[in-house]
Design a binder for these strands. Sequence first.
DNA 1: GGAATGACAGATATTGAAATCTGTCAGCTG
DNA 2: CAGCTGACAGATTTCAATATCTGTCATTCC
Lengths: 193, 193
Amino acid sequence: MAPSETLTAERILEATEEVLRRHGPAKATVVDVARALGVSHGTVYRHFRTKATLREAVTKRWLDRTSQTLARFVTEDHDPETRLRHWLAGLFEAKRKKAGGDPELFATYSVLAEEAGEAVSDHIDELTDQLTEIVRAGVESGAFTVADPAVAARVVFQATGRFHDPSYAREWLKPGVEGEFEAMVELLVRGLR
Amino acid sequence: MAPSETLTAERILEATEEVLRRHGPAKATVVDVARALGVSHGTVYRHFRTKATLREAVTKRWLDRTSQTLARFVTEDHDPETRLRHWLAGLFEAKRKKAGGDPELFATYSVLAEEAGEAVSDHIDELTDQLTEIVRAGVESGAFTVADPAVAARVVFQATGRFHDPSYAREWLKPGVEGEFEAMVELLVRGLR
DNA sequence: GGAATGACAGATATTGAAATCTGTCAGCTG
DNA sequence: CAGCTGACAGATTTCAATATCTGTCATTCC
């Protein structure tokens, strides 16, 4: 019962990510994944009903990594405004690092995210919930003044889209983005106070 | 010297738009444009050096229509905050109307805009300049308090990207966008004051 | 008997040959 | 002679035949 002999969903997802890294989103097939695992493709279909399901699962896994990284800023030991600034900076930083560090893999996952409508909107909901939590704390402490924290959080998330939406990834390399990001956060924080 | 006998750049652009409307961005060829005008394609090349130049010109023409629509809000007879609100609402309205009224043509121009890097960034510069003008007036009247109107204008433009960037066009149909837009403008205006 | 296999049908992707397009230019035309 | 034409070379696109892939399931294997 060595791990290499038990075929789990997790092992399939690892192999899928590897195949995606190698072949890219257009050419990565279920047959490739099965080959990488040394099983027949029918076996992969026993764990994931369709290719789309498999892709969505691997995408969700990728998105969840970001959510988890950011979760710590929500409960951080700072005042709400600082937590908000850290959370936004953390989101931008995380995305920029992913995009800059392995551009091909990032492009691959951007394509997958395009397909995986629900996984993405769930992810956005999760991030917005985290933001809402911070804004709500700010309202309670009197640092922020907004009618509805959930609405304010969504607006802040959307306003900063340029710094986390993958379709703007190429902008993240330009000199001056850092300054634009600072100015954006400044304006939004002022609007919340 | 009837207009139908004089081949001007403008007539070529009209024909190009018509061909794009009919065939879409992928299949619209210079030969099609020449055929629509009843001339040889060599003649079209006399007015536009390349197909890319022609496409960029027709894109610029399309973008300029929006710039002109919005220009009137800059000098409108209202206080700066109202002008800002009108300008932003006008931008959203104009884009949404274009996208909703003729989705295929909008999709066609979205593709063209993707290719025409410089025409688009010029257009964005022009819109940002208009916004800067309004923000500057607001700072002078004491309605707004910002260090640099140009920076603030760019941030406001970027923050509202979701409501004017063509890549978000499908979001514009969802119920509730109107409310999201209002909330966004509210937060930004508060941040500027 | 529960998990894995591999043959299969229909859908999708690849390939290479033929058709069309882009951009040039020498010559025609009014 | 200024503006237009159409033939041309090289690049790109189309199309149809071929190969591969997706998803199923009767059978095999441990």
